Computed example of a mutant assay.
Amino acid sequence: MSEVVTQTIDRCRAAGLRRTKALEELIVTLLDSPRPMTLSELAASERLRDQCDKATVFRLLQRLAEKGVVRRLGLHERAAYFTLLIPGRHQDYLICTECGSIEAVKAPCPVHELEDEIRRKTGFRNLYHELEFFGTCPACA
């Protein structure tokens, strides 16, 4: 088991979640995915399809999102996408308002310096941000 998986499971346990095989498989699946995944994609994934049903995956995702372990992305009227939040790693996303596709921004984050300034001026701790850009993807344009 990778160090990131172990650390994420430790974060889950510290947040009051039970360590289950389904939880472990969900974390590994999200970590191995090159992009955020929908509930349907997760439930049908090789690691989870024989482990638990879609309702269990949904409940796990809800709990993980509430505890700040998973980030929910997407437009409210479309399928939600989920990605693992890993301390020290940051990713911003582009979301198409037409088809709902999501892809990672492949550019330096413009908000890190602002975040540092806000932290210095306000004294806030554990400050973070989530940045999503919305527009029309090239395929829909």
Rank of each mutant, 00 (worst) to 15 (best):
E113G: 07
E117F: 13
R120V: 09
P36H: 08
H112I: 13
A104I: 12
R125K: 13
V57A: 09
A43P: 13
R63A: 07
C96Y: 04
C96E: 03
F58C: 12
T38G: 03
Q62M: 11
G88L: 05
V69W: 02
R19K: 14
L75K: 07
E103F: 03
A139V: 14
E115P: 04
L23G: 02
L26K: 06
F58H: 12
R49L: 03
V5S: 10
C96D: 05
V105N: 01
L73G: 11
Q51R: 11
L61P: 11
L127T: 09
G135L: 03
Q62F: 14
L127W: 09
C52G: 05
R78V: 00
D92V: 01
F124S: 11
L48I: 11
T8S: 11
A43M: 09
S2T: 11
H90V: 09
R35G: 00
E25D: 12
I27N: 02
Q91G: 06
C99I: 03
E3T: 06
E130P: 01
L61G: 07
V69T: 07
I86K: 05
E3A: 02
E77V: 07
D92R: 11
K54E: 15
R120G: 00
C99F: 06
L64G: 10
Q62P: 00
T97P: 01
V69D: 05
R119C: 10
R13T: 09
T38Y: 10
L23A: 11
T20D: 04
